[in-house]
Design a binder for these strands. Structure first.
Lengths: 405, 405
DNA sequence: CTGAAAGCGCTAACAT
DNA sequence: ATGTTAGCGCTTTCAG
């Protein structure tokens, strides 16, 4: 018979030692305060600190055990007088453990206030139940809505998410990916500006599952994404304006061609105008950057043209709001003098004054769908479709009207 | 001399084996596609899949090595012909490693495309460089702004954040804390509704550092928090309205007393009215829930009173916007017929129509300060102040004016 | 300056 | 039904 080796580590019994609670009682403060004092003395009020210090001295408290160290599975095993394996079985709800044994273990877990160490478990199991989310700006309502959808599905499927906010920086995008890989997340959701095909290749080679959100990959049918049809969205927006009799229709786009959603919406706009035989007036094409402030400036530029537009298609609701502010500052009335059409249907679109006509994107649902696809890939479950184009909706509200001229 | 044991595990040389790239070449697709096919065949277009399948068969590709397994430190060590310890030293920028050795290691790392496994490192070092964030709704602009501030500091100090969205559910709040503890995050930021003193005690006992945001703990000077002075904020808002000649000032609060920010703002409102000798009219006290829709309803209730208020103090900007919409629906003009004062200074407050007078909270800064305090506690650095009350600001815009009656 | 060996806390294959 | 053992991939003494 082999010697039992798992009693090698000594479990310090707390029973006959001075505990934090004794100190608390003696110094007449909460255990919380004592614990805090032990960890970071500087944050406890000086008079309180002094009292605690004296009690510690008086009771000869062993300063070794500062942080209430988490119990390990081994300690639970010892207390329950079983092996680590059995404790592990109880933890993982294996049914091949006897009723009485299980109870002993449960009691020990309770007594020691044992919290399994997921780091250790994950190292052993080679999984992390962690998803990485990379996005440019969490305070942008579009991204935060999508994130909410992702989180909802992830959480329901027992995954947690670690969030990387890149501030639109390409460098931080790259660093985030690197960190996430090193943390061994099981997959990524990307909402990126700077992620080009080359970097996607890099990702593919790393073998890490990922899905892009709010981005359409036209060139490779095997890269998963979730998006709406932005070309069609832009087309629908412009078409609606045309249907209301507008012919002098300006557009305020997003910056450059970094953000392909904006480019696609612009494409749709051009298409609608072409079909209606409306020539594109270059003066009516303004490049914004999705901010209120810039859109406001651009609207003013548009409205001070010799022949100002009667309608503006703003490629985001923020842009639309900026444009409305610009129009108002020139004493234009919206929609009487100028129609403005937005994009996204952020919550504020229906509460703005005037309420904003817009193309509704299913933002939370995009997040949900993306998370679902990602997790299916991670778990090697069948995925019916990895490139998802969700439906959008034309929402007509107060900011647009029939063209009076 | 002891035998060298670290050559025990065999490193599969990729040189003389059929690789994914050979398949790719043969099937005339990208390596990405092949890799994807290997992991989740169902997501590759069927014709492509068929071609790959044939190539795999033809080249007799070893299907064992599906996912490009990450190299381990041991493999790096073997390739560089040094010990794991030395590789580890290079990784951790220890300066007691020779120049030539270091170079060998660096090359091996490069060649194997080695990515350190942080799970293993963290298990060994007993740290995770992870912060847990618990908040009720990430799509609420207030929380997302705070989160952005947290993330900024965390990132700059080499921490990552895992996000828990509780949807205002007490159960999910508790579960989140549990999960976060098991994941061994090094500290929490809480923005909670249901976290009462009892649960704080529980947390304290767990020894886990944490800081509350947007919540003032009046009863215990040792629990860290970052907030503004909401009583004073409410007082300032109401006082401003009074200074403009208003005496019939209604308030739309948050729900119940769960959210103490709202309660505090209400307290400040009462205080300001008392000082101005304005009796509180119970008809003017409406309990909202921070949503646009509810605020809109309540504003309508207020304005259809026999003696409607001339001003409404809404305890959040969303509430203010809802109230404005309600007023407009009754053909009230804001601010000519009714002044409306908000709270928070969300970005949209300065772009709403009319722009909204409000109390500005330094949201991102609250996040930054909280993260900084938390990390200082985690790293046992001195913390000058653990209970921080940040300054707010009265911002006067278009939604308020002098009382005409 | 470098290597050997001992674990971090857990799970899982293999015994019994 | 339960125990033993061997790692997961890394860092860190301790030797030399």
């Amino acid at each position: 018979m082999k010697p039992i080796t798992y009693i090698s580590r000594e479990v310090k019994s707390m029973k006959n030692k001075i505990t934090i609670e004794d100190i608390a009682k003696d110094a007449n403060v909460s255990t919380a305060t004592v614990s805090r004092y032990m960890n970071t003395p500087s944050i406890v009020a000086s008079e309180t600190a002094e009292r605690i210090r004296k009690s510690v001295e008086k009771l000869n408290y062993d300063p070794e055990r500062k942080v209430p160290k988490n119990a390990t599975i081994e300690e639970v095993a010892q207390l329950a007088k079983v092996s680590k394996a059995t404790v592990s079985r109880v933890l993982n709800k294996s049914n091949l453990v006897g009723y009485k044994t299980k109870n002993k273990v449960l009691h020990a877990i309770d007594e020691l206030n044992y919290q399994p160490n997921l780091i250790a478990r994950y190292l052993r199991k080679q999984e992390t139940k962690l998803l990485g989310i990379v996005l440019p700006d969490i305070s942008n309502p579009f991204y935060s809505k999508v994130l909410k959808g992702i989180e909802e599905i992830a959480c329901s499927l027992e995954y947690d998410v670690v969030l990387m906010n890149t501030n639109y920086s390409e460098e931080r995008e790259l660093n985030s990916i690197q960190t996430l890989i090193e943390r061994r997340v099981e997959g990524f959701c990307f909402m990126c500006h700077h992620l080009d095909e080359e970097k996607m290749e890099f990702l593919e080679k790393s073998g890490m599952p990922y899905v892009m959100i709010s981005r359409t990959v036209y060139t490779n049918s095997n890269i998963p994404f979730v998006n709406i049809d932005n070309i069609r969205g832009g087309y629908d927006a412009a078409s609606y304006l045309i249907s209301q009799g507008h012919r002098r229709i300006a557009i305020i786009t997003g910056p450059g061609d970094d953000e392909c959603s904006s480019v696609d919406r612009f494409t749709g706009y051009r298409q609608a105008l072409r079909e209606a035989n409306i020539p594109i007036n270059p003066d009516y094409l303004k490049e914004g950057d999705f901010t209120f402030a810039r859109a406001q400036e651009l609207a003013i530029e548009l409205l001070t043209l010799d022949e100002p537009p009667t309608a503006i298609f703003a490629v985001s609701d923020e842009t639309a709001i900026g444009a409305i502010r610009g129009a108002i500052s020139l004493d234009y009335r919206v929609p009487e003098d100028l129609s403005i059409f937005g994009f996204d249907d952020l919550e504020m679109a229906q509460f703005y004054n005037p309420t904003i006509s817009t193309i509704a994107q299913p933002m939370e649902d995009m997040g949900r769908k993306a998370a679902q696809i990602l997790i299916n890939i991670v778990e090697k479950k069948p995925v019916e479709q990895i490139q998802l184009v969700l439906p959008h909706e034309v929402i007509v509200r107060e900011s647009t009207s029939i063209c009076k001229r």
